[in-house]
Nucleic acid binder design. Structure first.
Lengths: 265, 265
DNA sequence: CCTCTCGATGAATCCATCT
DNA sequence: AAGATGGATTCATCGAGAG
């Protein structure tokens, strides 16, 4: 662990660092996080390698004429071996930061799933399962002559044996079925629905600390505050750091309204 | 391809061979199957290596002393390397038997998923996706301090480019949510629900030929006939061959009743 | 029709002990 | 010390049936 960095933003137990995930992770203290929730760039593309090179996320993920909600995100063109290697690096660093028994959740698509399970174990975590997130067909991609592509996957594991303490050792649902947010409401291109974030947040006990090395639009940070957890987010792109902070501010206003509505009812 | 074997049973375009999958596959003709649907023994169980070896399916998967449907099945004790190797062998043989553009569906659990995706590609198939089957929580197992284990996975691919013919190139659902059949109604310990078989059957066009190298209790053969497809099943255990034939006979009677009921209504 | 209790269920897992 | 063996046990869920 190196010297502490200056946060990009901090409020209500939510901290956001701007910078490269590996670089920032190295500055975080040992055995401090109750759970690590990671949604790294998938680095996926065509079935054959040539399809994968030289395109940025704006052309890859937006097939219709819809306008791109945010800046193209980087780090999404690694080939498979270097992707596994890179994942093993930051996963190993996360292991150091995680408390014993802490949970790990890493999101991926079908194509990178085997690389991610390898990397999780290479990073020293105990791999314990896969949680599918399934989307309704109208929000996913048809494959002519095959099966719809309507699932993404969370590879999950733990730092050593699972927590058994009676105070917080829940049995969490092993499947989420929810639609992606409407493109108009999306902060990040690949933003996951609220249901997914709300599940991930429960990987840490109330008041516990979540670590999100690829914070993107800040969806997990928002969910962490909503669920009464602290969180540390890391995001490389300044545009997304700004978007995440705005997201947190917007949801705080909406949350206040929610509280008022509850009081009224 | 070697000499034809004598079928164990044959009727209505459904053929069942009794024998080792690899041995029987070698006797089947080239480019004859429209789809391959495989539900091999998972050789799974145990987060750590020691828990994976030397147990039979009856002691491994059945905790309560209750209802053991049928005998324990064999071939469920391979270590990870030999499991991948063995899968690549029969998958390669299936590729030879498959028509160009034929679909492949291989069922597995989370633990063997990466091995199976490797083996599918090693066998020469183009890997194209993962279809999760999710179960309701009350028919799956809680994991204290973690996520419920409530999904199994179909790794799917094709023999070369996907079929594009307008006559049969459907977009099939990429997710099934269904409960396991009631233990009393099960022919095989690990039998999948009807919804799963009905989806798999659609991988071949109506009248087309399905190949099931691990027929077990015959669930896919029954579904194939129900869906108007032909099928070739292979099963090693004579007990399960017999059970599959009985299953087909029972469902034929039930099917006749079903037709009558529809006529009545 | 609603609420409650009760029981069955699970393609395993944990851990002490022995080799 | 590492691996193999064997025995004991997990608990939230939801349907059925009763009240």
């Amino acid at each position: 662990m190196q010297d502490r960095m200056k946060p990009y933003w901090q409020e209500d137990g939510i901290t956001l660092y701007q910078g490269d995930a590996l670089a920032v992770l190295r500055t975080l203290p040992d055995a401090s996080a109750d759970a690590v929730i990671a949604d790294p760039p998938y680095s996926s593309g065509g079935v054959f390698r040539g399809d994968r090179a030289g395109r940025t996320s704006s052309t890859k993920y937006v097939t219709t004429g819809a306008t791109l909600a945010g800046p193209a995100f980087t780090g999404d063109n690694r080939d498979q071996r270097s992707y596994s290697y890179w994942c093993a690096l930051w996963l190993g660093e996360c292991l150091r930061i995680a408390k014993p028994g802490a949970l790990l959740v890493v999101w991926t698509d079908w194509r990178q799933l085997p690389s991610v399970t390898d990397a999780v174990q290479a990073g020293g975590w105990v791999w314990r399962g896969i949680v599918p997130w399934t989307k309704p067909q109208h929000r996913s991609r048809p494959v002519k002559g095959g099966f719809w592509n309507q699932a993404e996957f969370a590879v999950w594991g733990s730092n050593g044996p699972l927590r058994k303490e009676p105070d917080y050792a829940p049995c969490l649902p092993g499947h989420v079925h929810a639609a992606s947010p409407d493109p108009a409401d999306r902060v990040h291109i690949t933003e996951k629905p609220r249901e997914v974030f709300d599940l991930c947040v429960q990987a840490a006990p109330p008041g516990g600390l979540l670590l999100d090395p690829f914070a993107g639009g800040g969806g997990l940070l928002v969910a962490a505050r909503r669920g009464g957890r602290r969180a540390i987010g890391i995001e490389l792109a300044p545009e997304y750091c700004q978007a995440a902070v705005q997201h947190l501010a917007r949801e705080r206003r909406r949350g206040d309204q929610g509280v008022l509505e509850v009081t009224d009812g």
